[in-house]
Simulated scan of single mutants.
Amino acid sequence: MERTIDYIASYNDTGKTIEKFLKEHSITHQVLVNLKKTTNGILKNGIWAYTNEKLCDGDTISIHIVENDNSVNIEPVNIPLEIAYEDEDIIVVNKPADMPVHPSMGNHDNTLANALMYYFNSQGKDFVFRCINRLDRDTTGLTIIAKHALSSGILGAAVASRDIHRTYFAVCSGKTPLSGRIDAPIARKDDSTIERCVDFENGEYAITDYSRIAYNEKNGLSLVKLNLLTGRTHQIRVHMKYIGYPLIGDFLYNPDYTFINRQALHSGRLEFTHPVTGQKMDLTSDLPSDMKSLF
C-alpha cells in the first residue's frame, strides 16, 4: 500500500519545524519514524527534507506512506462483504451477525479480518487489519477499518477523545421509558472472563443515552435508539439489563430466543471526521431484517 498526502503550510505555520507541523496534523511519533526511513517519505516543495527544517507560508509538505506488510496469522477467506464506504484511507463495512471481528480460538477463518484480507489480497494489495470500532460477534452494522498507520493513529485518538459518535439500535424486552440517561459504572463480573456488570465500587465510568422510537404491544418489545458517551465492553447490553429492559436474544444477559437468535443490537450510524481529508463523515445503515420484522 502506498499513499501520498500533501499539507500546505499557512502564514501561522511560519517558523515551525516540519516535525511540529506534522504532529499538529495528528501524525504520531511512530508514523514519523517510519516516514524518515522511507525513500522520499517527507518532501518539502518536492525536495527531500529533514524534519527540523523550518516552514514558510505556502510551503507544501508531502508525506509518502509505504506499507508492504500483511497481518500475520490471518488467512484470506472469500467471505462476502457489504461495503458502506471506501477510499484510500479507510473502509467502512456493514458487518453481518454471527461474524467475529478478530480471529480467535475456534474462529480462525470466519471473521471480518479474514474477509478483508481476501478482499485486499485479491486486488494484489498488502493489508494490515486495524479495526477502529470493534463490534461483538452478533452485533450488526457499521465498523471502521483503517487502511494504513496514519489513519489508524488519528482515528484511534478520535476514539479516545470520544470524537467518533456512534448511534445504535436495539430491541429490548418490555416497554422502556420514552428516553433517559443511564449513568452506571461497569466492571468485569467476578469469576467471568467475558461477562460484565454494573459495579458502583469497582466499575469504570459509563453513560448511555437512549430513546424509544417504537413499541409493539403484541410482542411487548421496544425499539430503542442509543448513543454512547463512553465505550465500555458490553455497555449497552449491561446498561439496558440494569434498568430492567434487556436486549432480546442476548446469550449472556438475557438468553431469550423467542423472537430472534442473536442479541438484537445494530450499529446504525457513525459520525466522525475523516482522518486525512478532514471531511465530516455521516454514515448510516438500515436496520437488519431480523430486527425490523419485529415492528
Rank of each mutant, 00 (worst) to 15 (best):
S10Y: 00
G15H: 02
T17G: 13
T17W: 02
L22G: 10
L22Y: 01
I27Y: 00
H29V: 11
H29W: 00
Q30R: 09
L32K: 00
I42Y: 02
N45V: 10
G46W: 00
Y50R: 06
I61F: 07
H64Y: 08
N70Y: 07
V72H: 01
P80I: 11
P80R: 02
L81S: 03
A84C: 09
D89Q: 01
V92C: 08
V93H: 05
A97F: 06
V101R: 00
M105K: 01
N107L: 04
H108L: 13
Y119P: 07
S122L: 06
D126A: 10
F127E: 12
C131E: 13
I132H: 04
T139K: 02
I145G: 06
A149R: 02
L150M: 11
I164Q: 03
H165Q: 00
R166M: 12
G174I: 06
I182K: 00
D183P: 10
A184N: 06
I186Y: 03
A187M: 09
S192L: 11
I194T: 15
I194P: 11
E204S: 15
S211E: 15
N227L: 07
V238E: 05
K241E: 09
G244D: 01
I248Q: 07
D256E: 09
N261E: 14
R262Y: 03
H266K: 01
L270H: 03
L270I: 07
Q279V: 10
M281A: 14
D282I: 04
T284M: 12
S293R: 02
